[in-house]
Design a protein around this nucleic acid. Structure first.
Lengths: 160, 160
DNA sequence: CGAACGCGGATAGTTGTCATCCGCGTAGGA
DNA sequence: TCCTACGCGGATGACAACTATCCGCGTTCG
């Protein structure tokens, strides 16, 4: 059970976008994080389709957060990249074999699926409780207040 | 982010084993659940290596739970099949690029990794709170008390 | 001894992730 | 008007993981 590495990239990009003054192009985000430009573009497109991010086309274009960073939860970012499907998929094996449960008893999900769903709900709730703004605050806590000052300078240099 | 289908098989097998009077061979478990015998064998070997299940070799051999069903958590079964690695793997991209965080600031995990780890901890806690005995009780609740009577009969017919 | 069983390795088919490239449309500046 | 920088979507391919099967080996019991 592994999460795509694109999730990590997407989250960090959202944190950076929360500090940007204008649109940030893919190439800048890729250079900043030291990752593949073309592949990062794919994940940014996913964020765009999910509505978390807005793209400005044409020259001087780039990406912007669509909402305030405090309104964007980590869960939204993860699901934009990973998709909404739960990790556990019940195949209803209780309906297989010689002792198959009667369909009448299968109107509700089986106990195994219920327990798995509850665990994933706990996971999603935890992610939903963290916003991009919280993550940005964590960076300041770890790296000092001037951490984002350097970032804004570097982004502005790109716009020359 | 998908979980292996083998997890579902393994969990259902544990519930069945909790109701068995003696060793149950792989072929019987596979027939009962309508799944591939050879592939299920792989997952049962994983449970065996994890110590959740004990194998009796030779003729009339098969699998037994090593502990009381109330002592076996769903988390143990999931991790026996899926492995212990977390779904999110931090690649420390904060140390990449022109504005890399100083190594000194990276002694602790980055905020993103911390949030992800907290969510996975919530997931594991939820799974740890459910035992195989709880799942068996759920089957009785859904299918009536005689659900496992038929199962025990069917398993005994195999030993006939 | 023979039959039934678990164990481990070898082997593929299929799917999903990771990554790259190209052509297209769009917007701003010279 | 043209050029350039940019996002978008499709096509493509390398690689790993999951899914599935088979075989030979050792063990146990009648």
């Amino acid at each position: 059970m592994k999460m795509s590495a694109g999730v990590e990239w997407a989250v960090h990009c959202c944190v950076v976008l929360s500090q940007a003054d204008g649109p940030v192009p893919t190439a800048r985000l890729a250079e900043l994080h030291g990752v593949s430009r073309t592949y990062l573009a794919k994940h940014l497109q996913q964020l765009s389709r999910a509505g978390l991010v807005r793209s400005t086309e044409g020259r001087d274009g780039g990406y912007l957060l669509t909402k305030d960073a405090a309104e964007v939860s980590l869960l939204e970012v993860v699901q934009a990249v990973e998709g909404p499907e739960p990790a556990f998929r019940c195949t209803e094996i209780r309906q297989n074999g010689p002792l198959a449960a009667r369909p009448a008893a299968c109107r509700s999900a089986c106990g195994v699926a219920r327990a798995m769903a509850a665990a994933e709900h706990a996971w999603r709730s935890s992610l939903a409780g963290v916003s991009v703004a919280d993550l940005a605050a964590g960076v300041v806590e770890d790296n000092g207040r001037q951490a984002f000052v350097g970032l804004r300078d570097w982004l502005a240099r790109g716009r020359g």
